[in-house]
């Protein structure tokens, strides 16, 4: 396995969650590729809104894809699970040891994620292991029947009822205090509150949501131009033109988030500026 380099670490305290975390590759300690960050779990507490963990796998991806294809993927995942009521596992952000071009997780989280990949494990056992030269075979450490790999050790916790996901947040319709449309949420910025820098262990830890960016357009949402303009002039100019109605909204200025109706309403005195004009 390759402990591939991951470029520079995302060391900023405040960063775009959609740009830097969502849809990124998850890498284990030995460099194993363990899936993508398909969604993020959010928790509302009296102190604010926090990104607490990530979800990975067909169910989360299906939710992000939407439409009949996404539903099909999610339903197929649920049907193929053995539990009576399958829940998606949330891997807490404390288990993320480093965030660079990949999301690097610790050994235990890596094992849980490897064990959750049922299609991979099924293909290994029933297809690949029968072809000469597949190597590994019985000595494979990721075999699912190893007793220490049960999810009971508390690393992967099922998505709870009170929790929300970033994909729900991204689908919210944003409105001004008098009901004017601001579009949908396309980016969320957050800051580190736990982890190494704050003396809470080694992991990345939960992230406090600071601002949301709303836009009537989704085009190029994850390209990385939402918060800071950079790169070739032509691309920058085209995206700026397309996203000229983007608005930055501090979470403290949000009057209410109605998850049921899928609405986010800005407060009366909310400052709405283009994200490039916010320092």
């Amino acid at each position: 396995m390759t402990p591939a380099t991951g470029g520079w670490e995302v060391d900023a305290d405040r960063f775009g969650v959609v740009l830097r975390l969502l849809d990124h590759q998850i890498v284990g300690e030995q460099g194993q590729l363990l899936g993508n960050v398909d969604d993020l779990a959010l928790e509302e507490t009296p102190e604010g809104l926090f990104v607490v963990g990530f979800l990975s796998g067909p169910a989360a991806l299906g939710g992000r894809l939407g439409g009949w294809g996404g539903r099909l993927l999610g339903d197929a995942w649920r049907r193929l699970r053995t539990e009576p009521e399958p829940r998606q596992l949330v891997v807490p952000l404390e288990r993320v040891v480093r965030l660079d071009s990949a999301v690097r997780v610790d050994t235990r989280a890596g094992r849980i994620l490897a064990q959750e990949q049922r299609l991979e494990l099924w293909l290994r056992r029933h297809v690949l292991a029968r072809i000469p030269g597949a190597m590994g075979g019985e000595s494979d450490p990721d075999r699912p029947d190893r007793p220490d790999l049960r999810p009971a050790d508390g690393i992967g916790v099922p998505l709870r009822d009170g929790q929300h996901t970033v994909s729900e947040l991204l689908a919210l319709r944003a409105l001004t205090s008098d009901g004017g449309a601001l579009g949908e949420v396309i980016e969320v910025t957050a800051e580190r509150v736990g982890g190494r820098e704050h003396g809470h262990g080694d992991g990345l830890g939960p992230l406090r949501v600071l601002d949301v960016i709303c836009s009537p357009r989704h085009l190029g949402q994850e390209l990385g131009y939402t918060l800071t303009p950079q790169g070739p002039r032509l691309v920058r100019w085209l995206l700026r033109a397309c996203h000229r109605s983007d608005r930055h909204l501090h979470l403290g200025d949000v009057a209410e988030i109605d998850w049921e109706r899928g609405e986010l309403r800005a407060g009366e005195y909310a400052v709405l500026r283009h994200p490039h004009d916010v320092d």
Binding site: L33, S56, R124, V127, G136, G137
Partner: peptide, 23 residues
């Protein structure tokens, strides 16, 4: 396909470890 889904891929691992890729 493997990179889109985040699966293990590549010939730098034993084929068994990248089952979906080889399939």
């Amino acid at each position: 396909i493997a990179q889109y889904f985040g699966w293990q891929w590549g010939k730098f691992v034993e084929p068994l470890r990248a089952a979906r890729f080889h399939v």
